Computed example of a mutant assay.
Amino acid sequence: MYRHVLKKKQIRCYLASAGISQLGNVLAGLAFLFLSYELTESAGLTTVIAITQALPYLLFGLIGGAVADRIDKKRLLLHIEFLRVPIIMSLVVLYYAGSLAFWHLLVVSFVIQSFGCFYNPAYRAVLPLITTRDERTTVNSLLDIVTRGVQVLGPVFSIGLLSTGYTIHFYTIDALTYALSAFFIIQLHWVEPSSRVSPGEKKLQILPSILEFFRWAKGEIKMRTLFTATFLMVFFNTWVWQVGLLLMLLSNYPNQGEAFYSLLLGWYGAGVILVNVVIPFLWKRLGSSP
């Protein structure tokens, strides 16, 4: 089945765009942490940068999904890709102008991740529009393999870049991945689901639908608990894993801490993939045992 779906140009372009874009995201995420510490040498401010990479998903995650359902997805994806290129490259320009400051990293990190809140649900929503029902599970599996594979290879790839001493060019590569991703998205063609509601009316429905959800969630204790638990998990993952581990490595290995951190992220990603493969297998075996 994998061979069958990969014969289709649409699917190859879809997977290529996802993988390339994910590589840029991984490298940019590392660069924000590394450069924030290099500029400030502050654990607290480095933590703030890490939080700005997670906070937008708590603030705009629901809004992004609602927007993706109601506007032209291809136009949205391309607009975001083309906007991200100059925004991320502004950091490179500021660096070579000798003007790069912590607050630049803070703003750009928040903006880029906020774009992701709209980009990711729209991109996922494209999959059923370019595949048949029989292909969907296979392509979704391939998409997961590609994105998780890049999460493993991205940090390992970054070790070679770190050896050059130009961490700032993580952003240059990130900008290139956005441009390449846009190229592959342009190759995709699909028909948006038909609706009796006009595009203008769909846009007007975005805010009411979000408000309606929050009114419903307000009375649901389970939903409030879920949001609180999600926030706490994101916060502690940000502090303990992203920042705590990085600072520990930098303090013990000043010259190689960033490379060790990237390598550990790669191993962590490999472990996640292995667990995702093994658990369904074990679950199936346990379910079939007498």
Score class of each variant (00 low, 15 high):
125 A>W: 04
81 E>Y: 12
109 S>Y: 01
56 P>N: 07
128 P>G: 14
67 V>Q: 05
143 L>Q: 14
73 K>W: 01
86 P>C: 12
78 L>S: 07
124 R>H: 12
45 L>Y: 11
131 T>H: 08
24 G>F: 04
69 D>A: 09
24 G>H: 05
131 T>E: 05
28 A>C: 09
33 L>A: 14
22 Q>G: 04
123 Y>R: 15
37 Y>E: 05
130 I>D: 03
48 V>K: 02
34 F>H: 00
47 T>H: 06
46 T>V: 12
127 L>G: 10
133 R>Y: 11
67 V>H: 02
71 I>N: 03
73 K>C: 00
145 I>S: 01
96 Y>F: 15
114 S>W: 04
57 Y>P: 03
64 G>D: 02
69 D>V: 08
121 P>E: 00
131 T>Q: 05
60 F>Q: 07
127 L>I: 10
132 T>C: 10
119 Y>A: 03
69 D>N: 15
79 H>F: 15
51 I>R: 07
103 W>I: 11
45 L>D: 09
143 L>H: 13
21 S>T: 07
94 L>I: 05
146 V>K: 10
40 T>H: 08
129 L>P: 00
75 R>L: 11
82 F>K: 03
57 Y>F: 15
38 E>R: 15
84 R>N: 04
59 L>Q: 13
97 A>C: 10
58 L>S: 06
120 N>Q: 13
64 G>I: 03
50 A>H: 03
130 I>Y: 06
109 S>P: 08
99 S>G: 07
105 L>M: 05
40 T>Y: 05
35 L>W: 04
111 V>D: 07
139 V>M: 01
97 A>E: 13
115 F>T: 07
25 N>K: 05
124 R>D: 15
97 A>Y: 14
59 L>S: 14
106 L>S: 08
92 V>T: 13
39 L>K: 10
140 N>Q: 14
108 V>Q: 05
83 L>E: 03
142 L>C: 08
63 I>L: 15
111 V>W: 02
71 I>V: 14
116 G>S: 12
32 F>K: 10
44 G>I: 12
62 L>E: 02
53 Q>D: 06
52 T>H: 00
106 L>V: 09
33 L>H: 00
91 L>V: 06
138 T>S: 05
33 L>R: 02
27 L>E: 01
138 T>W: 09
52 T>K: 07
21 S>F: 06
132 T>W: 10
33 L>E: 06
142 L>A: 13
44 G>R: 10
52 T>P: 02
61 G>W: 00
93 V>H: 07
86 P>L: 05
63 I>D: 07
32 F>G: 03
65 G>T: 08
66 A>Q: 13
